[in-house]
Simulated assay, not measured.
Amino acid sequence: MLRPAVLSLLLSLASCAVILENGMPILWAQTAGQVTDLPTQNGVVTPDPWNFLHRMSLYRLMIAVTDPFMGSMGTNATDSPIWGLPLQLGWMLTSGRLADPTGATTCGLATGDTKCISPQSWWGCVNYFASALPFMSAAEQGLMGAGVQVQMQAPEGVTDYCTTYASCAVAYPDVIAKWDAFFQGLKATAESPLPENEKKDSLLGLYWEAQMASSYGSSACIARQNHYSSVEVAFSKNWENSAEYVSAAHFQSNLENSAMFIAPLPSRILQVGDTAPNIADLSEAENHTLYIFSWINSINNLLAGSLVRMWKGAMCSVTTREKGREMLGQLLLNPGFATSTFLSIISEMTRGC
């Protein structure tokens, strides 16, 4: 369950996109609790990743089968880093980002199937690499049960999504290899004699390597950005770039931490004329998040990419990564935190490496 302080923060973000329902990801109660709840055909599990409940079910099942190895993450049932993914998917749904951006169908619209994920959505495409591919990897590693085979359903007329472990391993070998390494490393890390904080850091390292591989693999979705405004495209790039900082710090994307970072993301698709921090129909928190995302990207561009390199260089130990996670929280969630402080602390941390 979420701490009162976190609930208070989320209540203050009332105008932001809805990501929680009774303290859990939205529509969680309607998802599959076991693999046998998913459709099957000729003995093969055949989820429909273009149905929101099916895609959310992939996360619920992955969390369930990996939780026994997550002891180093903490004592709460929601401490697994995988919890960040269903919250992110929920934000994409309620902010309208999973709907058909072409206007050719009513997929994802209030006037159509609200649980439909459009294969033309850039956001839905990017998320496919962080949902369908890791699920197929987990099944291949035996976590879903001995001999369980999976084939994702494909949208009619759409052929550019891999749908089996074998086809994804050929099309996106690094994505599959990194998720395989994460799932294989779960047991080894859990049984390691290392101190708990080092086991936690090691496991988060494997997790974020897999996450970043999914992010890089999803460059295959880039043509779908043509369906959005230049402002939304700029935000989407800043959103992707923010993962470079989060991953390097081995952010523990459990339910509580993720809720704080995802709730202030923009609750609707951005349009031409939207300029943070002065977008009238978005909350102060949403405006602040958009402004910080843009600021970080602008500074990195001005420094010819060296801000990301400095940050990654500073995240050189368990200790500095702990400091990095705290600083990211201050930067994104505390409007009073000076951006100049961020740069000076990075410089200082880099010298310590």
Rank of each mutant, 00 (worst) to 15 (best):
M70E: 00
C162W: 05
K115F: 15
P264E: 09
S214H: 03
W91G: 07
A177R: 08
S192H: 06
N241Y: 13
P195I: 01
F342H: 01
W123R: 01
P195Q: 03
N257Y: 06
N241L: 12
Q30P: 11
Q252G: 03
D79C: 02
A171D: 07
C107Y: 04
C221S: 07
G273C: 11
T36H: 12
E198C: 00
M310P: 01
W123T: 07
S137P: 09
S347L: 13
A181K: 00
A5G: 10
A130R: 00
C353R: 05
S340C: 02
G147D: 08
T102G: 14
Y228R: 04
Q88P: 00
S218C: 14
Q225I: 08
A213Q: 04
V231W: 05
G103M: 03
L203W: 00
E198R: 00
L7R: 08
D180R: 05
L302Q: 15
L333I: 10
S131K: 03
F235W: 15
M73K: 04
M73A: 13
G23M: 09
Q225R: 14
A14T: 12
V148P: 07
E256V: 07
A223H: 15
L186E: 00
S347F: 06
A220F: 06
L20H: 06
K312A: 12
L58A: 13
G43M: 10
I345E: 10
Q153F: 05
E140A: 15
A263R: 08
N238T: 13
S80A: 12
E198L: 00
P101L: 05
Y172I: 03
L333D: 03
I296F: 10
G352C: 09
E348I: 11
N238R: 13
N127G: 07
L328H: 01
S137W: 02
T350W: 02
M315H: 01
F293T: 01
L2E: 03
E198K: 00
A249C: 13
V148Q: 10
L194V: 02
A130K: 01
S15L: 15
Q252D: 02
K200D: 00
S253E: 04
G305K: 09
N238E: 15
A276M: 09
Q41E: 14
M92F: 15
V158W: 08
M92N: 10
P4E: 03
V175I: 06
H227K: 07
C16N: 12
E286R: 03
S283K: 04
I292W: 06
I82M: 09
P119T: 06
